[in-house]
């Protein structure tokens, strides 16, 4: 039996199993926490820092996606400081790549764009970096536009954890980091890609898309992940 912890999120009494995270319990209770790297069904990496919360007694902010619940903890999800940081994180993503929402396949169906609207980001004070990034359209079904990649690594994880192909990984580091297939070979030449398309569906932006989709037509569906996980568990049981 997994012990159950009771604690507070934004003053609201909630409870969760000890192996659950603050994020999971917040979602369960309809408390909004923005996330980009996190997606239900994949291992959390705590990379995007959007779901950071304040926990009473700790002077450090904690990523809700990677923090287990504890008895009696008091979590604040939406202080002014957190809102400010979250907006800045989104601004960072906008200036780091070339997110031209207006001509993006995911326009209107993009998690980054949606969060910007939701959190009130109507411009950014940071400096647009206008990097020269590539587009790989070699694959006959899918394409990747690195200009729109926010390095959430959902594609890397879904490919390794769920599909088991590990076609994707991250190369380089820092601001030069980018996702690659195999040895940075054009996607079409990847020996390991199973063409399952899971990476496309979990991608929060228009970075990964079906080539058959025009601007604004790429609607993502990441909902299959919990289903796959559950069915796998049922079958293995």
């Amino acid at each position: 039996m997994m012990p159950v912890k009771t604690f507070k999120i934004d003053g609201q009494d909630v409870s969760g199993r000890e192996d659950e995270t603050i994020l999971e319990i917040a979602r369960e209770n309809d408390i909004f926490l923005p996330t980009l790297c996190n997606i239900a069904g994949l291992k959390p990496v705590g990379a995007c820092r959007l779901c950071m919360v304040e926990v009473a007694g700790s002077n450090k902010l904690l990523p809700a996606c990677a923090t287990r619940v504890q008895e009696g903890m008091e979590v604040t999800t939406n202080s002014e400081r957190l809102q400010k940081y979250r907006r800045m994180i989104l601004e960072m993503l906008f200036v780091e790549g070339n997110h031209i929402c207006s001509v993006c396949v995911a326009n209107g169906h993009c998690e980054l764009q949606w969060l910007a609207e939701k959190l009130g980001v109507d411009h950014t004070r940071l400096n647009y970096m206008f990097p020269a990034k590539e587009v790989d359209v070699s694959h006959y079904r899918y394409a990747i536009d690195h200009n729109r990649c926010i390095l959430c690594t959902r594609c890397v994880r879904v490919c390794a954890e769920i599909e088991g192909a590990h076609t994707w990984d991250v190369s380089g580091r820092g601001i030069e980091a980018k996702v690659v297939t195999d040895l940075n070979t054009p996607w079409a030449l990847s020996e390991t890609c199973t063409e399952c398309g899971k990476c496309v569906q979990v991608c929060p932006t228009g970075a990964l898309f079906k080539k058959s989709r025009a601007v604004g037509e790429m609607v993502k569906d990441g909902q299959f992940l919990p289903y796959l996980k559950t069915m796998r568990e049922v079958d293995n049981a």
Partner: peptide, 25 residues
């Protein structure tokens, strides 16, 4: 080079993209 990365990756059962990721990190 690609050939050596590919060889080492396969021999050690490391995904190629991971080997490339490490080599460039």
């Amino acid at each position: 080079d690609d050939a050596s990365l590919s060889f080492v990756a396969q021999r050690l059962n490391v995904p190629m993209s991971k080997a490339y990721g490490v080599a460039t990190f």
